[in-house]
Every structure is written in structure tokens, then in C-alpha cells.
Design a protein around this nucleic acid. Structure first.
Lengths: 334, 334
DNA sequence: CTATGCTCGGAAAGCGCTTTCCGAACGAGG
DNA sequence: CCTCGTTCGGAAAGCGCTTTCCGAGCATAG
């Protein structure tokens, strides 16, 4: 099909093929204000098709001064929590004809900054930060600096999860959700609670623990990584130490699922011997057996909402709160 | 910090600030062959930092003729199967300093083409197609055309899953894996098999069904969507029709998990009354209760391998096969 | 001390597009 | 029949970079 010079077909090629000027070709292809005569439109369209032309987004971006991509930074795209958020973000992006460039930091705050600056180079319309906020002052400061430069240059950014970054934020009422859950479990008659807390520098984890502690008397804590295996190990240690707990609260669902595995390995029946509850309501929470009691957060909505915020500029950073709802399932049946 | 004109800081701004020419600034920033004198490097670096400069990737792409992004098309990023693949792709991309632009088609073949052409505009170094191949001749033809233009223009592409697209492919030995699983289940003593097949136009689903059927006598089939709910509904219908099956094979894990839910709703104990097996070994398969027997595919490796293939150009399209290994777990314990 | 060969900054061309501006062509109004 | 106002195609400038090319300055060899 293509002959001669290599590399992608350019608009100039199309114009030549159609026997019109570059300007006319451009006007046809990008549907500008000025619509050339029907016959020319036809010729150009045909030529473009014949050559398999695809506009060069980079050139367009540079000429127009805006791109049509948004950046998304998550901690781990394989984690259902983040992949659900990503689904919401991509869905809303698509609705606006935008492409999403994804970065997965694997939880390391330094990488978050690196990725932010890599994304910044793409001059995205907006950047959504969905990585978990950690108490890591140095990284946080670098992040803020980078973010400021980005916004000074006309970029827009939003965060999902904790507020505190001085940008549009969709925050989760972690403490409140955990408190409600704690209350519900107390109402169910549980008394000897064990809590599997996440990393101490992870604000989400800390807030959930605190909220829960406000409503339910906690017999013991055990820290663990924010992952399935973290939950499993933490539960194992905790149950070894305090075998007579009657309910375990893991600060997120993936930990809770790990905890279920551990509890069963130690011979507990769930929920008869030990109840377990989580937080987030990731898709597999409802499929676990017994189905996991948790605090439902509409994760896709979080993603969609962050996109919406970031695409409707405002003078001041806004913070929206998503509240979770307690979902009692079989893992805490009495 | 910034004064005067708006928009992001440009290299020209940096050069002016540092009192050097554009050329020198460029040489310092992008680390070209020619290293300017230390003093100038210092001045430029300082100026860039002071201004919060971030190179414009689009301009760079256009000047250099290559970008540093790769495109990834999946069916549904919220599905653990695809998010695991995405994790592999992003991991390998990062290792090469590349950014990943993600598109989620929600299973509609037409959208796959749309996204492909949208991605093509970004002139990515490579595009990885991880959407499921369907028998949808029209869409497939458009896809092939688009793909050809992309490659004619110097782009590289790879597919994950089925071969047949005339590009580098990482394929899964679906039939073989399913056959091995069938054999293993027969060895375990199961005899009355029910199969939950996916959509009839989905090659992956068809191949797995066929492979399984080659080794195990199938009492009945039931078609269903390739999702959790599809599995649940299909299982429900099938079990209503043939209540005395002793083992259900769902052509993927998410369907199998849905089937578990349905079976339990109908009063079956698993695995005592009914065994269940899936395919893929998504992360939650091992966490299900009872843990799900399945065919393990290293999904992240699929993603990594596809990236590797696509980044090491070859004259002819290559096809690599990933073979699954049967993992017997509690859901088929005898 | 001159000829030769470097090294190193900077001017400028060029990447693929968009958009402004200009001038030609044409229709309508007087 | 002329003028004015439109419409429309094309030339060219410009977007932010990279890179080639040139010329100045310097060290070394003869």
C-alpha cells in the first residue's frame, strides 16, 4: 500500500494525494470551524482512507496547546481496589473522548513522584492521584512541589482517598465508616475485637482503625501489610496471641480475605468461632465464603467523580466526601 | 514563582533564565551526546529547577520521531484477569522507561477498533491487544486494517491470548490446559460433568470447552456471559435442568466463582455434593472457599512477555505459547 | 610562529500539525 | 456596470523541541 518514504503517513502526504493544500486537509480532518467545499472534503477523506492516515496526536497537541490524555497514578493496578477505581476513571475519560495513561507505583511513595513527573511531561489535561497517601514527609513535599509546578503550568489534578494535598479530592469517610461498622458489630453482640491494622504510616489505615476503636472496645491490634498476605500473617499472629477473640476487623477487604484464610488454617469456623469484617467491598468480598461483612464504598464512582471534579475547573480546591455503608453478610452472622 | 506569560515553562524560558542558547539547554536537559561545559550544565540545571521545568513530551516526540508510551487494550480493567495482565505490562514498561496508555473496551469488538485508532494517534512505540478475540468478522477485518496501517507506519503490536492476528502473540494453550484438567477430574472419579461455556463467539471459551470435552464426557452445557454473574446464572439454569451432575467446569475463574455462589444458593455443598473447577487462577481463586481447582496461567507473565516480544522487533510475527498447569484445590476434593 | 585539528556554543532548519492572514472569486446591491 | 461584502483555498508563521551545521577559540604539532 505505502510506497517510498517510511514512517507514518503525514497530513502533507494526504494533502498531496488529494491535490489540496495542507490547510485544507487539516480543516477536513479535524473538523474545524471552516468547512471546505463538499467536493474537497470528499477528496481529502478518500485520500486519508486510501493512505491509512492517522493524525499525529503529539503534533496536534503541540500545535493546539492541549492534549486529550489524562494521567492516573495508582498503587497497584492488580489490586481490585485500584482496578475498580481505574475502571471508573477510564469510563468517565472515555465519555469525554480522553485516553488514560496509567502508572502503578507498587506502593512506594518515591515512585509516585517519579511517575507524576513522567506524566507531567505528557502535558495531560489532568492527573488523578489514587495512590494511598502515606506519612512520608520528604516524598510528600516533593510531590507537592511537582504538583504545584504542574498546576502553575495550567495542569489540573485531583486525588482520591485522603484530603491534604491542596487539590481537588474525593475523600472517603474512613473513620465514620469504620465507626458505623464497629457499632453494628457491637449490636450484633460481638465483644472481643481484634483489629488488623495496615502500615502505621498509611493514613487510610490509621483513620479506619481509629474510627473503629471509637465504637468498639478493642482487645488487641496487629499490624500488617495492606495486602492479602499481610492480612493472613497479621491474623495468624494475632490469633496465636489472643485465641479467644470473637471478631476480627481488617482495615481493608484484601486483608480480611487473607485473615479468613489464616483463621481457617488455625481451625476456626467462620462465623461460628470467629467473625470477620473488612472495608471497601471489593467485588470479591461478596463472593468470599462466607460472604464478607464490610463497609461498601462505590469504588468506580470514586474514580468517575475524581475525573468529573478535575474536568470542571474551580478556583479553589474542592473536597468531596464519599460515605460508606455497612454491609452485613454471613461472615458476621450470629 | 512564575511570572508573566501563562502555560507551562518552555525550554526557551529555561535557556533565557540560564543565559544560554536553546541548543545548549536542550543538550543539558536531555543528556545528548555532546555534554556542554560543567559550568553551563550547572547553570541550566539550576534554572530548570528554579522554574519547575518539565520537558514537553509531545514536542520531544515530534522532534525525535519516537515516543515513550505504549498502548494497552483490555476488555475490562476491573476484571482480575485483565488487571493482572495490565500489571505485567506496566511492570515491563516501567523497566524500559515507558508509560502505558490504557483502554478498556468492555468487551465490545467495535470499541476495540475505536480504541486502537485512538491509541494509534499517540504514535506509541507499541500496542498490546489483550482484549478477548471474538468471532466478529466485520470488526476483526477493520481491526486488521487498522493494525496494518499502524505497522506500515513503523508501529509494533502484539496480542495476548488467541493467535490469528498476524502479529506477535502470546497465546495460551487453552485446549491443552482444559484437557489436562478434564483428565485430572476424571482421575479423581468425577463422571457427570456440566460445562459452563462462555459466549459462543469467544474463541478462548470455545477452545477450553473443546479441550475439556476431549477428555471428559460432558453430560450437559450451559452458555453464559464471561462474567461472575454469567457464571452464576448459567450454573443455576444448568443445575435446575440436571441436578445430579457431580462436577461443574466453568471456562474461567470468574464464572466458576459465580457458579459456586449459585450452587450454594441451590443447596449444594461444595465439594461434597458438587465439585467446581475454573480456568486462569486469578488471585481470588485461591482465596475462594473452598479454594478453587483451576488451570494456572501466569497472567502477569503473559503481560510481561507480550511487552518483551513487542519491544524486540523481528521480521516475522512470532507466537509464543503459555501452558497452564492444573491446580487441584479443595473445590474438587474427593 | 603558523598550520592543523579539536572542542564547544549558538543559529537555524525541521518535525507534523493548526491557524492566521491574504488574495482570488463570486454574488448582491446600487 | 461597478463596488462592497462574502466565502473559501492556500501560503506561511508558529507550537516546543532536537540536531545539523557553522564558526570561534584553543591546544598541539611542525
Amino acid at each position: 500500500m505505502r510506497t517510498g518514504k517510511s514512517g507514518p503517513v503525514t497530513l502533507a502526504d494526504v494533502a498531496r494525494e488529494a491535490g489540496v493544500s495542507l490547510a485544507t486537509a487539516s480543516r477536513v480532518i479535524n473538523g474545524s470551524e471552516r468547512r471546505p467545499a463538499p467536493e474537497l472534503v470528499e477528496r481529502v477523506t478518500r485520500a486519508a482512507e486510501r493512505l491509512g492516515y492517522s493524525v499525529n496526536a503529539a503534533a496536534q497537541a503541540i500545535a493546539r496547546g492541549v492534549t486529550s490524555v489524562v494521567g492516573l497514578i495508582v498503587s497497584d493496578i492488580a489490586d481490585p481496589y485500584f482496578s475498580s477505581i481505574a475502571a471508573g476513571v477510564t469510563e468517565e475519560a472515555e465519555r469525554h473522548g480522553l485516553l488514560v495513561t496509567l502508572a502503578s507505583t507498587k506502593g512506594r511513595p518515591e515512585r509516585e513522584v517519579d511517575y507524576l513527573s513522567a506524566l507531567r511531561r505528557q502535558r495531560p489535561l489532568a492527573i488523578v492521584l489514587a495512590g494511598s497517601r502515606r506519612d512520608h514527609p520528604a516524598a510528600e513535599r516533593r510531590l507537592a512541589t511537582e504538583l504545584r509546578s504542574f498546576r502553575d503550568g495550567g495542569g489540573r489534578a485531583a486525588a482520591i482517598s485522603q484530603p491534604g494535598l491542596d487539590i481537588d479530592t474525593v475523600a472517603v469517610r474512613n473513620a465514620e465508616g469504620a465507626a458505623e461498622l464497629g457499632q453494628a458489630l457491637v449490636n450484633l453482640g460481638y465483644r472481643r475485637f481484634g483489629v488488623l491494622t495496615g502500615p502505621p504510616d498509611l493514613r487510610t489505615a490509621v483513620d479506619r482503625t481509629a474510627g473503629f476503636a471509637g465504637c468498639a472496645a478493642i482487645a488487641d491490634f496487629q499490624r500488617g501489610a495492606f495486602t492479602r498476605d499481610g492480612g493472613r500473617q497479621a491474623a495468624r499472629q494475632l490469633l496465636r496471641r489472643k485465641p479467644d477473640l470473637d471478631c476480627l476487623f481488617a482495615v481493608n477487604d484484601v486483608m480480611a480475605i487473607g485473615a479468613m484464610v489464616a483463621a481457617r488454617e488455625l481451625g476456626y469456623r467462620i462465623p461460628e468461632d470467629l467473625a470477620i469484617a473488612g472495608f471497601d467491598d471489593i467485588p470479591s468480598a461478596g463472593d468470599a465464603f462466607p460472604a464478607l461483612t464490610t463497609v461498601r464504598i462505590d469504588l468506580e464512582a470514586l474514580g468517575r467523580e475524581a475525573m468529573r471534579l478535575v474536568l470542571t475547573p474551580a478556583a479553589e480546591p474542592r473536597v468531596e466526601y464519599a460515605t460508606g455503608t455497612v454491609v452485613l453478610r454471613a461472615s458476621t452472622k450470629r
